[in-house]
């Protein structure tokens, strides 16, 4: 029974990782830019959710209506202001730009919001439903279900809609897509927006569960990078699966070994997977070249 509880906790934690990773892998798969400021976009969305609660008195689940479109706009802005001028630049330049953005955002947050740890006190976040010996946290269940729902919805969007197909086309062959009359800049902008909106959803949903502070992004995003590479760069299903796997490993090793060792354990598993499948669990060989399938 303890094992089952630990597994459930792991899956729920994995939902958090997956939700954060989905946007990262979408942006990478299409725009081919590794966004090192992804964690800071998470941080901004958590602060947005926090202030919606503390200033406007909005329930964090309700304020998603503001936070998600807001983060879409933040993503569009980052893409047009920071990424667009260096769209065709070497990748190290793009890395410097996004790392630079991350440093700037962290320090701006320090100036405006101070380094204090803030959280919101929501009775709902502490509610646990008991089924026999198993306790299920409702707010974590919501994160878990959202991760699966978002992965599915984004997949549907990419598979079925004209816009989604244009996103895939740009990822597979940018010049050929231009010859089809597709405007790459518009598609990149929208993709960055969607990826950021997804992490906005993550930020809003985890705000009742975690503290927010200026460098909170780094705490989550390191894991998100592991998840994205483990699942296969640019692969939605891979990100979901990778997130859940890392969550379960995290939870199992934290309980049975030592909480201090859990990062070591998942990095060992990570290395092991890469040893046998260098392109990640769901990734195809050459995905870093090809992007989103």
């Amino acid at each position: 029974m303890v094992l089952l509880q630990v597994l459930i906790n792991g899956l729920f934690l994995g939902g958090v990782y997956a939700l954060i990773s989905l946007g990262l892998t979408l942006i990478f798969g299409v725009i081919r830019v590794i966004n090192f400021a992804h964690g800071e976009i998470l941080m901004i969305s958590m602060y947005a959710s926090f202030f919606c609660f503390s200033v406007l008195g909005l329930n964090p689940y309700l304020s998603l209506i503001i936070v998600i479109p807001g983060m879409f706009l933040v993503g569009v802005l980052v893409d047009q202001v920071i990424i667009r001028p260096i769209r065709n630049a070497p990748s190290y330049m793009q890395i410097f730009a996004t790392v630079g953005l991350s440093v700037v955002l962290i320090n701006l947050a320090l100036v405006f919001f101070s380094g204090d740890y803030r959280s919101i006190n929501l009775a709902f976040a502490k509610q646990v439903v008991h089924m026999g010996d198993i306790g299920i946290s409702l707010s974590r269940l919501i994160v878990f279900i959202s991760a699966i729902a978002v992965a599915w919805l984004v997949w549907l969007f990419l598979d079925r809609t004209d816009m989604g197909k244009q996103i895939r086309a740009i990822a597979q062959d940018r010049d050929a897509a231009r010859l089809m009359g597709i405007n790459p800049n518009k598609i990149y902008m929208i993709t960055f927006g969607i990826g950021s909106a997804m992490v906005g959803l993550a930020g809003g949903l985890i705000m009742p569960l975690y503290y927010v502070f200026p460098s909170v992004g780094a705490y989550f995003v390191l894991t998100a990078f592991v998840v994205v590479v483990l699942g296969g760069l640019g692969n939605m299903v891979g990100a979901l699966l990778g997130g859940l796997i890392i969550g379960v490993i995290d939870s199992l090793s934290g309980y049975y070994l030592d909480p201090a060792l859990k990062e070591m354990v998942y990095f060992l598993v990570f290395l092991g997977v890469l040893l046998f499948k260098p392109s990640g669990l769901m990734g195809m060989i050459g995905a870093e070249e090809m992007g989103l399938k």
């Binding site: 197909k165 086309a169 597979q172 050929a176 089809m180 009359g181 597709i182």
Partner: peptide
Amino acid sequence: RLFPYMTVLENLEMGSMT
């Protein structure tokens, strides 16, 4: 320069996005 991981029909659809 087809879109290699799309179906034949999807490739055709890509021609009509204007």
